[in-house]
């Protein structure tokens, strides 16, 4: 457990930011921004994920190898999604 030095106050602050981002998501959904809303909602979801992973899941204190493992799932998912959309979006009909 060496190196983990986040205080309970930091956890509270991160939680407050997460709740704020949820409110922003709900407000944006009410504004009906069209296709932009999907992008905005996903960007906020990614921001929340980074906060949870870095602070709650302690990636901030993790060794470089652990960070590589954490990123591996995301990298392979981007390949999966990217190649699938590369097919679907370029079909003739």
């Amino acid at each position: 457990m060496s190196g983990i030095s986040l205080s309970t106050t930091s956890y509270r602050n991160v939680s407050i930011v997460l709740f704020t981002l949820l409110v922003v998501t709900l407000v944006l959904a009410e504004l009906h921004l069209g296709p932009l809303a999907w992008v905005a909602a996903l960007v906020i979801a990614c921001a929340k994920t980074v906060l949870v992973a870095v602070y709650f899941m302690h990636l901030r204190f993790a060794t470089p190898l652990t960070r590589v493992f954490a990123l591996a799932g995301v990298v392979w998912y981007v390949i999966l999604l990217g190649l699938t959309l590369g097919d679907v979006l370029t079909r003739a009909h």
Partner: peptide, 22 residues
């Protein structure tokens, strides 16, 4: 010991990312 435990869990979570990712 701590790093090994964290590595194993993150490896499992990577498979979970791909499960929900699919």
């Amino acid at each position: 010991q701590h790093e090994s435990a964290a590595l194993g869990m993150w490896a499992f979570l990577a498979t979970e990312v791909l499960f929900f990712g699919g």
